[in-house]
Write a protein that binds this DNA or RNA. Sequence first.
DNA 1: GTCTATAGGCCGATAGAC
DNA 2: GTCTATCGGCCTATAGAC
Lengths: 204, 204
Amino acid sequence: MSTRPIAARVSNADRNLKSRTAILAAAQQIMREEGYAAVSSRRIAAQAELKSQLVHYYFKTMDELFLALFHDVEEQFFARLDRAAASDRPLSALWAVCRDVHGPRLTKEFVAMATHHDALRGEIARAAERTRSVFVARIAHALSANGVSQDAWPPLALAVLMDGAGRLLIADHTLGATAGHAEVIAFIERQIARLEGGAPDERR
Amino acid sequence: MSTRPIAARVSNADRNLKSRTAILAAAQQIMREEGYAAVSSRRIAAQAELKSQLVHYYFKTMDELFLALFHDVEEQFFARLDRAAASDRPLSALWAVCRDVHGPRLTKEFVAMATHHDALRGEIARAAERTRSVFVARIAHALSANGVSQDAWPPLALAVLMDGAGRLLIADHTLGATAGHAEVIAFIERQIARLEGGAPDERR
DNA sequence: GTCTATAGGCCGATAGAC
DNA sequence: GTCTATCGGCCTATAGAC
């Protein structure tokens, strides 16, 4: 028998994390497949095979649940982003993150929610700025390593172009419109290769 | 008194277009301010100061209403886009359309809906492709007028970069994050000026 | 074309037993 | 921590009077 004080063992670790995790996983799946409007305590319960009241036990309000879900997703995303930024070819790796179809589908829902959901808006803005700064740092580094003028090619602008293009391609893909994608991807990857592939030639 | 056959005057023009218009206008405003999930027949009725049942008179189902609203918005958008494409400096004008804060807020909601709303998805995909083709045509024209290689700078890729950047800037703006925007905008407008404004001195 | 009335459903959230 | 029971609210949609 443990000699630790009961309070320490019980505080909030007494919670059945399996249920909490199942609730968040179910919420994420519903949001991904049917949009944020479809996420309700009852739908979550059905998905996770538990009672809807349990959702309210773990999350006092639905707003609280959405915030918790966002933090969950955010954490995974930044772990991935930081891994990409630390790779041998950070621009290629970051571009791969941009192009991944799974992340942004949720992001899109959260951004749509943010318009009219104050608490979420602040969190998302913070995450967006942090993401941007990771891109800017790696792009700036790649540019200076290749002797490219940052006045002519501001890293911030390139970061926005890269991220924006990625999101747009994914939005198209979701809609079922993939015409011309290969051409666009080839163009962007050609620019990245110039910076990372080792050929330090001037652009344009 | 008109001599036209009654049927022609009555067919479906007998409808009180004022109510129909008011319903769509109210729906648009709610969608803009509170997201698609907030658009209900009752909320529309309250906003437009009429009875919720009237909404069902004009639109048999809510899906039908959303489709009608999309077509409405789409029509206005393309009128504007075509006007921009026909202007003296089409790239500048198209970029202004990209940067406009009002259009995309609705677009974002529709795109979010599209994920799980089949009928809407097809319509939005069609509109997205049409938009893209307008951009590509003007960019290709500007490039060839300036003797820029379309192999090195594929119009399709530039269209995606331009549109994507515009949407991302607006998304940021909605979130309240505008840091660095001026720099990004300056960069993009510098590229456009090279193609349209001519060199520093040349002003066509 | 607009109204009243109403059916039938899913929602968030709470109270209280165990 | 999980359950049963339940309240009050907003939703889509229809029927039928005028």
